[in-house]
Simulated assay, not measured.
Amino acid sequence: MAQKNFSSRKAGYQNHSHTQGKVGTGGGRTPRDRARRELSQNFLVDPYAIGLIVKAADPVGAVLEPGAGEGALTWALAKCGARVIAYEIDPLLAGRLTARTRENPGIRVVRGDFTKVKAPREPFAVVGNIPFSITARIVDWCLTAPALTSATLLTQLEYARKRSGDYGRWSLVTVSTWPWFSWELCGRIDRESFRPVPQVDSGILRIQRRTEPLVRDRKAFTELVELGFSGVGGTVRASLRTRYSGVDAALAAAGIAPDTVVAYVHPDQWIALYEALGMP
């Protein structure tokens, strides 16, 4: 799968965020500092980086934004014509963003936990600089939303690389959802693009729903993949032979060597394996 290699421009920003004022060298912590840490708040302040996210998302129609924060990405999405519903759990930030966007008909701010929101019935996308601490919860929410068309999420770079196969290895969540969703690393955002500056760089992870599923029986495919990842016997061959017949011939048809460790089986090979085993 082709990867896009982007990097954000480093700019000479002062070390501050709008919610905490300038960050000094003192050891004090204000209530806002504590809230920021608890809510994993790192605000995106680099216009170039924001542009990369918007370009990757290509927002059209309804867009849900988890963790809108101070609204830098919110405004950029709305300027592209998207109808943005911006979710922010921090009451202070939600109030400020509501006040600043009240006159913009393309933006609606909702104070609350995005992961507890009921997904819309009409087609929609998710775009957000999401809190690293709840990345898995937000991704799970997106994958289970029937009307979701895509999710473009700014995550820890390591997470984005693992899920997109950028390390040359594949995770269970990516493989098990591959017939229904593609996963792509669309860029890298330097940690200096945020205030406060986090400890790691970020990656733009795009999850795109396929127009047509690549397999018909989700339950059967998921069971096959989960057994392969179970680790029984140490290889995908050993794991699958505990339940399926004709595994050796199916592996050969899918181009998978008998001693292949499960993480190195490409998602497309899993689909070929599924078909070679005669599964519907």
Rank of each mutant, 00 (worst) to 15 (best):
A151I: 06
K4Y: 08
E122K: 15
L52K: 06
E103M: 10
T174Q: 13
I89C: 06
S150W: 02
R32E: 15
E184K: 13
G21L: 07
C142A: 15
G168L: 06
A86H: 05
G12E: 15
D90N: 09
F194I: 09
W183E: 02
G128W: 00
S176T: 13
E192F: 07
H16F: 10
E88Q: 09
K118A: 15
L251C: 02
K162C: 07
L185M: 13
L251E: 03
V45C: 08
G67C: 05
R210H: 10
A136M: 08
G255A: 05
R237F: 03
A257H: 12
G128L: 02
Y87I: 05
E226Y: 05
A238G: 01
C142F: 01
P59Q: 07
A136P: 01
P131F: 07
A257V: 10
R241H: 04
R209W: 05
G233A: 04
H266R: 13
P47N: 13
V109Q: 03
R216E: 13
E226L: 02
Q199F: 06
V109H: 01
T177A: 14
A78H: 04
T25V: 09
L224A: 01
L97M: 09
G168W: 05
T222K: 08
W170H: 14
A49S: 06
L277R: 04
L224Q: 00
V173H: 04
K162N: 12
S164G: 08
G278W: 02
G168Y: 08
R241F: 01
E192A: 14
L97D: 02
A99D: 13
D140A: 14
F221V: 02
P146R: 14
P123D: 03
W141M: 02
I207E: 00
M279W: 03
D259E: 15
A254M: 08
W141Q: 01
E212S: 10
P280T: 15
K116C: 09
G26F: 08
D166G: 07
P66E: 06
A253G: 10
G51Y: 11
P59I: 09
G51N: 11
I130Q: 01
P31K: 09
I89T: 09
T222V: 14
E223A: 11
L227A: 06
Y159N: 01
D90R: 05
L185I: 06
Y13V: 03
T260R: 14
F229W: 06
R29A: 12
V262E: 00
G228M: 01
A254T: 07
L240P: 00
P258L: 06
V225K: 00
L172N: 03
G112N: 10
G106A: 14
V54P: 02
R83A: 13
K10N: 12
G112W: 09
G27F: 14
V225M: 08
